[in-house]
Amino acid sequence: MHARRTAHHLRTGLTPDVARGPTMERRAHGLLRPAGLDAAAHVQRVDDAVGLLLPGTALGGWASLFLQGNDWFDGRTGDGVRPALVHCSPGTQLRRRDVITPFRGRILAEELTAVDVGERVAVTTLARAAFDEARTAPDLRAAVVAIDMAVSATHRRPRTTLDAVRRVEARHVKVRGVVQVRRALDLASERSASPAETRTRLVAQLDAGLTGLRVNAPLFDLDGALLGVADLVDPETGLVIETDGAGHREIEQHTLDNRREEAFERAGCVVVRATALDHRDRWGLSARIVRGRLDAARTSRRRWTLDPPRWWSTWPGARPWL
């Protein structure tokens, strides 16, 4: 962490002339750091927010999740990087700036922790940070994405659990945005592996009206061989919905995707694929999912099963999907 309040720099030996000179960069009102440092915009935003923290404050929301190692959260939007949420205890004098949004609502001691980034930095727990991300999200779908990425057991990043977020929600029944959190918790999953997968699932659920979908579910042939792990599968009909994120354009991943799709189709599944471009036409994607389910329901072949063979639970490669 490099950004510090001007008063801190002066207390530790920086002279006023140097503070005003070209070797120091003004990051916000009263916030300086050495000039010439290069870092991604969201990393700089977290650094700036930490530099502005006062006693009785703690970093929250996306910045807390990021600082604790869950890099699905970077605060980036189409317009740049969002301000970092900072929880303030009563009486703490911390003004709103472009880089931070002070929040003076209720927070409990058990919702606070600290991380060591060369120094101890006060942050909210992963569960409280996920709650705040969902609470302040611009809409329900964004709130579900936030919770999914905070609780996912498949992406191998630091995570919390749905139960832990629910416990936070139960303690804060009057805060703005709590109704959205409750609705998002009802739609969230601990098995989604990416924001794109979550958004595709929400199109299938909320727009196409599908229920009972299995998330990142392994499918097997009737001899017990693994066909592949489907992003989404309708256990009633065998409709498989696959989400192609940016990484799927790489030739190696694209080849694996093609082989998995062929295996699903040989076993009698119907596959619908969704890309970022499809999500620009949500209703078109929804219609394709509905048609795919109708086709799957008419398919007489069912050479697949969701029931895992004995070897599956002991195979190391199955660990993310158990």
Rank of each mutant, 00 (worst) to 15 (best):
A84C: 15
C88D: 06
R76T: 12
L65S: 03
D98Y: 15
L94F: 09
G75N: 01
S64I: 02
W72H: 09
F66W: 05
L59M: 12
D71C: 10
L67K: 06
D74E: 05
S89V: 09
R82M: 10
R95K: 11
F66M: 04
Q93Y: 04
S89W: 07
F103Q: 00
P90M: 04
S64M: 02
V86P: 12
H87P: 04
S64R: 00
R82A: 07
Q68R: 07
G80R: 12
V86K: 02
A58S: 12
C88I: 11
D98W: 15
P83Y: 08
S89Q: 14
L65R: 00
R82C: 02
G91M: 11
R104A: 11
R104N: 11
W72D: 02
W72K: 01
L94Q: 06
R95F: 04
R76Y: 04
T77L: 10
D79Q: 13
G78V: 12
I100Y: 05
R95E: 10
V81S: 05
R104S: 07
N70F: 07
G69E: 11
T57L: 08
G61Q: 09
L67F: 09
V86L: 14
D98T: 15
G80V: 13
P83D: 04
R96D: 14
I100C: 06
C88F: 03
A63E: 01
G69D: 08
R95Q: 10
A58R: 00
D71I: 12
R96S: 15
T77P: 09
S64E: 01
W72T: 03
G78R: 13
L67C: 13
P102S: 02
G91T: 07
T101W: 08
T101K: 12
V99A: 01
S64A: 11
P83G: 04
R104Y: 03
A58L: 07
R104P: 07
D71P: 08
W72G: 00
D79K: 12
G56E: 15
G78Y: 05
F66P: 00
R95T: 09
V81T: 13
L94S: 03
T101V: 15
L59S: 02
G80C: 11
A58T: 07
P90A: 02
T92I: 13
D71W: 10
D79L: 07
V99W: 00
Q68N: 05
D74G: 11
A63S: 10
V99K: 02
R97C: 03
R76Q: 10
G56T: 14
C88A: 05
S89T: 11
G78D: 14
S89R: 15
T101M: 14
R76E: 06
V81E: 03
A58Q: 02
D74H: 04
I100D: 00
R96F: 05
L85D: 15
T77I: 11
F73M: 08
H87G: 01
S64D: 04
A63T: 03
R96H: 14
C88M: 08
G75L: 02
G56D: 14
T77D: 10
L67H: 10
P90D: 00
V99Y: 04
G60W: 03
L85H: 14
F73N: 04
R95W: 06
V81Q: 06
R104Q: 07
L85F: 12
G78A: 15
L59G: 01
T101N: 14
W62L: 12
G56P: 12
A63G: 11
T101D: 15
L59T: 03
V81Y: 01
G60Y: 09
W62Q: 07
D74S: 05
S89L: 14
R95N: 11
V86Y: 11
A84I: 13
Q68I: 07
P55Y: 06
